[in-house]
Design a protein around this nucleic acid. Sequence first.
DNA 1: GATGAATGAGCCTTCATTCAT
DNA 2: TATGAATGAAGGCTCATTCAT
Lengths: 198, 198, 198, 198
Amino acid sequence: MPAISVKRMQDRSAAILEAAQRIFVARGYQAAAIAEIARAAGISDGLIYRYYESKRQLLDAVLAAFFERILNVLEPALAAERGFSAKLRALIRTHLQILMAEPGLCRLFIAEVRGAAEFSDSEAQAMNRRYSKVFLDLIRDAQRARELRDGVEPALLRDLVFGGVEHLAWRAMSARAKARIAADADLLADLVLRGVAR
Amino acid sequence: MPAISVKRMQDRSAAILEAAQRIFVARGYQAAAIAEIARAAGISDGLIYRYYESKRQLLDAVLAAFFERILNVLEPALAAERGFSAKLRALIRTHLQILMAEPGLCRLFIAEVRGAAEFSDSEAQAMNRRYSKVFLDLIRDAQRARELRDGVEPALLRDLVFGGVEHLAWRAMSARAKARIAADADLLADLVLRGVAR
Amino acid sequence: MPAISVKRMQDRSAAILEAAQRIFVARGYQAAAIAEIARAAGISDGLIYRYYESKRQLLDAVLAAFFERILNVLEPALAAERGFSAKLRALIRTHLQILMAEPGLCRLFIAEVRGAAEFSDSEAQAMNRRYSKVFLDLIRDAQRARELRDGVEPALLRDLVFGGVEHLAWRAMSARAKARIAADADLLADLVLRGVAR
Amino acid sequence: MPAISVKRMQDRSAAILEAAQRIFVARGYQAAAIAEIARAAGISDGLIYRYYESKRQLLDAVLAAFFERILNVLEPALAAERGFSAKLRALIRTHLQILMAEPGLCRLFIAEVRGAAEFSDSEAQAMNRRYSKVFLDLIRDAQRARELRDGVEPALLRDLVFGGVEHLAWRAMSARAKARIAADADLLADLVLRGVAR
DNA sequence: GATGAATGAGCCTTCATTCAT
DNA sequence: TATGAATGAAGGCTCATTCAT
């Protein structure tokens, strides 16, 4: 006989996650106070620790949920396309859309997790690797199908695309008209496809 | 007549900057203590505040100095080459070398400054824009000389290259044999050059 | 008709007491968490408060139960002996055995209760006084029977013996071969008996 | 050129120590708040940590200072006497006076340090051993001078005396007329001397 | 100019106790 | 009756910044 329903607990967990995401994004990890997250979630400070072990794990959960959302969009999007060219365009477009839709979370991930040793065994890092693997697999499949010219290093291509998209998103977020995003995504895809074409 | 000579003040300022860079890189901005920087610089805590207004401005100065050094290498390197192709290869190689040579400062910049609202009017951001402009100008010159195919957006290409190099550097710093860097740099240049070739 | 049987309540009360003793001894009073005691007792946190008013009272109950057990051993042991000398030896031996058998509880009592103002009207203190009285009565009986030299203050003798035994036990618990305990107990008794002999 | 004089720092250190002693004695270690100690010392919370590394080390310093004071009284007192009998009386009397003069500190030591594993390498423990050694040496000297009967274990005798004095002090602190202390001390000495006399 | 003592706000986390379910 | 979610106060400690010396 739980004191509150499972549903209620899930709601709470989600409310905390949502509040944490908002505050982390607004202030950065270090500057975000647990007390402020609790207030934003409409609960007491202490209750957060029934749902998440520590501030750091709360951040991890926020980012893991972010990747979850990404993969839930990206994987079907890729599955729906045929051929390297179409799949690459879909990947770049989706990637860019995600970055544009949640720029704060991207920034959070980059600033707090990427390259942070203490996060190397976190769930967020694991999902990041899984995310990255989606693209690597795409390239390798294309290589097996002899769709790419020889001598293209998969990891290098991945870095090129992901890095390019990321930079593009940075700029886009602050300055550019959102309308041009789709066009830019295709331009980027064009550049890459020409680069690797046989 | 100042109480201490101008020369002495410059030396001190440099010593503080050097110490701050070391500690910021080693610990990250938040975890770096002013007291530790002061100790590393061989002066007292309070004296730092005669040379830099706050911890945040000290970080800004460290990163601005970093960009200064980069530009001092990059600009001559580009000037020494002729033609878009050669200049692009030089730029990528130089950029990659810098990132590999000072990975800690790159990480610091990415984690603490890029996208941080509070830094948007900082000197480091200004130099970042100046740095970025070097490449934009290169592309525009190539376009004027009709070395690139039509429809290539300069900013997009810049993002592609900078983003790709950055990702490449991340991976390289942690895992890969340093020997392969030069080869990767050229592979990256190849990919891009094929992408934009007429 | 109570909602649960009296028997069940007594079992529960005992289970809580046993669990509390274990945790208090293992962690000390402050570091022992009600939640851990509840878990050890196989019940929920809240239920403890139906049996004991507060954490402090739970400690009191644990220590009172300890004294109860001691008296249940000590009183028959003394009753079985005749003459001050034999009774004193029995008392010292029993006292020492108890301290050695449950050093954790002794430490708990000394650290948390003895001399604590807030505990002066606790049950544990009351039983401590009753425990102490056993010895005082023994001395007074011996004085009435003219078994002791004149001028021996009963309370002083009690302090001497109890204090000596306690110190002895401290040392014994940590360092000394358990085999020597009985011998030490007799040596102590000898010293005291010579001290008070006519 | 220190910002404040050495004298001032020593005064501060002493003021903190004095305040800490007062608060620790009044509340016990756990319940004593650093903030309250700081307030009692007339300084800010943070400054305490310039003089003492942690709350625990502050306690250690309080107790070490206590033992320092004790030894400064005890050692001359013993040196002034000749013969085991006189020295023993002096030791008991001094010990008792100290306990009576600073009962709170005795309680603090017993409750928080004695038997606490985490304190086994503390300065307070070291001074406690040194304190204990004073008595052990006294007994051994007496044994070499054949002033004691055979078969008296020095450590046992020490425990008897120290334990007895401690218990005596407990009682005395709460209940008894202070006037009787000296008499009790001599009674205790008599008991012990008779116990060990040849 | 130079020092470093002093400040004091701020933060994560724990946990006894309560009470809705 | 029993649960355990929820509270919220408390506390040790850090550290950027200031200012008396």
